[in-house]
Design a protein around this nucleic acid. Sequence first.
DNA 1: TATTTTTCTTAAACTAGTTTATTTTTTTTG
DNA 2: CAAAAAAAATAAACTAGTTTAAGAAAAATA
Lengths: 190, 190
Amino acid sequence: MKDYSVLMSYFKHMKKAPLSEEEEADIRSFFSIKEYKKKTLLMKAGEANTKHYYVAKGLLRLYIIDQSGKEFNILFASERQWIGDLGTPAETPYFLETVEDSTVFTISENNFSVLYKRYINLSRYIRKSYVFLQKRFVAILSKTAEENYEELERDHPELIQRLPQYHISSYLGVTPVFLSKILARRIKKD
Amino acid sequence: MKDYSVLMSYFKHMKKAPLSEEEEADIRSFFSIKEYKKKTLLMKAGEANTKHYYVAKGLLRLYIIDQSGKEFNILFASERQWIGDLGTPAETPYFLETVEDSTVFTISENNFSVLYKRYINLSRYIRKSYVFLQKRFVAILSKTAEENYEELERDHPELIQRLPQYHISSYLGVTPVFLSKILARRIKKD
DNA sequence: TATTTTTCTTAAACTAGTTTATTTTTTTTG
DNA sequence: CAAAAAAAATAAACTAGTTTAAGAAAAATA
């Protein structure tokens, strides 16, 4: 049986009131739910009209591949977080991939727009995404990789556990070799 | 006499239809319009409930000052562009300053929310801001300062004319010294 | 559990970008 | 238009981060 409870609790939270049977059925009808094995691509650069994803279980990453073929992780999303390219319906420059086996709710841009008008608080997702990115942007611009690692460790220790190191280095904007060097240096300091 | 025509033409554009007298008066009532001399601070890190700004004339910059006192320009806005901290009403980490003598429409977060519901297309501003920032983020992460300068030159040649070089270097995330070096190198190449 | 594959570490030579300081050029202002 | 102030250029010594390559450790799989 498909379990929409995570999604429903999110909408309940947004409405700040219980949802009626009809509302629940209605919301359900906009989304599909699917399970993916680790390392599955859900979205690929070059595609247009991509979807929005809400994570029920697991861990995903949004990344780009630059001219030289190097990957950069833009964003991770785990339980109860949105992920996707807000630039949709335009052609996306991003890839979206599961890092762990994951269960994900998917909604099209069109359906998203409909719900967006109905649950104006959905706009929080966009605004929150923006604020998050802006913070991250400033951090990358103004802090060293070591400081950024420490911030990640402090604010999202679970990510450090769940992600391979090379995904973290790519998120911090440095090479795996350099992150390894930072970590070695940190150990020495103690 | 206060000239709201730039603002009205923006709302007309969003509505995709002419505005009635009442609508115009209504919109006008949400905004204030002001002129500022160059280098005037409109917003300061630490303030809460900051405003949104729509530029009628001139050039503004949004920036942060990091721990070491260095400035980083996050965003510029000139004629017919929005600028501000979408993180409002939370305490802002940014400064907003005029780079040229400017005329600016100002709207509070509360009034913005009201208009936001009425003109759902206003949400484009947020979404566009997000997409823009994401692109910029990727560029800073994956390209050299020289490539980023060339992109800016190609996409926004007017900014290169209007901004002092040290504001551009700060936007590219490098020191003025290094940008000057890049430019010297480029001249030699010819 | 032995083998293969993936991830992480280390090292050394390199490059992009910083820092500090001085000089030159341009812009602003009395 | 002269003087002062602001912006840009140049140089030299430095540091954060990259690249390539090889080996070690850990994880996945037969």
